[in-house]
Design a protein around this nucleic acid. Structure first.
Lengths: 133, 133
DNA sequence: CTGCATCCGATTGGATACTG
DNA sequence: CAGTATCCAATCGGATGCAG
């Protein structure tokens, strides 16, 4: 490890990077992950999501749900009642994804202070007078 | 599991979702992950990154590196030679992150076809005539 | 070689109002 | 209840040129 570049190395790992970006692009939106998390416990209704996810607009909730549905990550079930009732549920594939995201959460919680400190230190060092303001 | 919402459930998981978003925001940029991957093998120079990551502009490389440095995920080492030589290297924390991202890659590779098919099916079903074009 | 500054287009996301 | 439509502001990212 820790070797210098050997010419092909970067190109090679770049090929491995593409699938990662595929995932992240799919989850990159501001709300996708929170929806996945909120729906992880079982079927959940549109309004429940809207109330449960602080700050989300109806528009973004709809758009994000559509994208998740399109990618086969959530199912949309319309109950033809009155008033209408629509339930969203994670697919098995999305549940796997959710578990994987849990690892990321763990990492974030373990290192949130480290990152926050690093950020503060960096800011202090690069713009001392601006930080105070 | 599979229970309906119990009122606090969504709020509760939402609290868990925040750290996830912290992570993702940090890695959400178009290039952050590819840089992390490219630098995972050891110290790497600016130009090597620029050549290795297909399509990245010098501007975005600089900006993304600065953000990663700010968050304590990469170190920047300037060798005061002529011509100047700057090497970037992942911090231990970033290496952990990189491993976690690997899980995401695995998920992506396992399910890339599933997602692609779901997407194609969705598009076919929702805009049949537009898909052909 | 390693950056920063500027301009500009594209995309994202919020606010609001309207509908079956 | 569960959306859709429209408008608008902010951010992101590419292209280019200049500099230590």
């Amino acid at each position: 490890m820790s070797q210098r570049n050997t010419g092909v190395t970067v190109q090679e790992v770049n090929a491995h990077a593409c699938p990662v970006r595929e995932v992240l692009d799919r989850v990159a939106g501001k709300w996708s992950v929170q929806i996945l998390v909120a729906a992880a416990h079982g079927p959940i209704r549109f309004t429940e999501l809207e109330r449960g996810i602080e700050g989300i607009s109806r528009r973004m909730l709809t758009l994000t749900l559509r994208n998740l549905e399109r990618d086969g990550l959530v199912t949309r079930t319309v109950h033809p009642t009155v008033p209408p009732k629509v339930e969203y549920e994670l697919t098995p594939v999305a549940r796997e994804l959710h578990e994987t995201l849990q690892r990321l959460t763990d990492w974030a919680e373990r290192n949130r202070h480290y990152v926050a400190d690093a950020r503060a230190a960096y800011d202090t060092e690069h713009a001392p007078e601006l930080v105070a303001e």
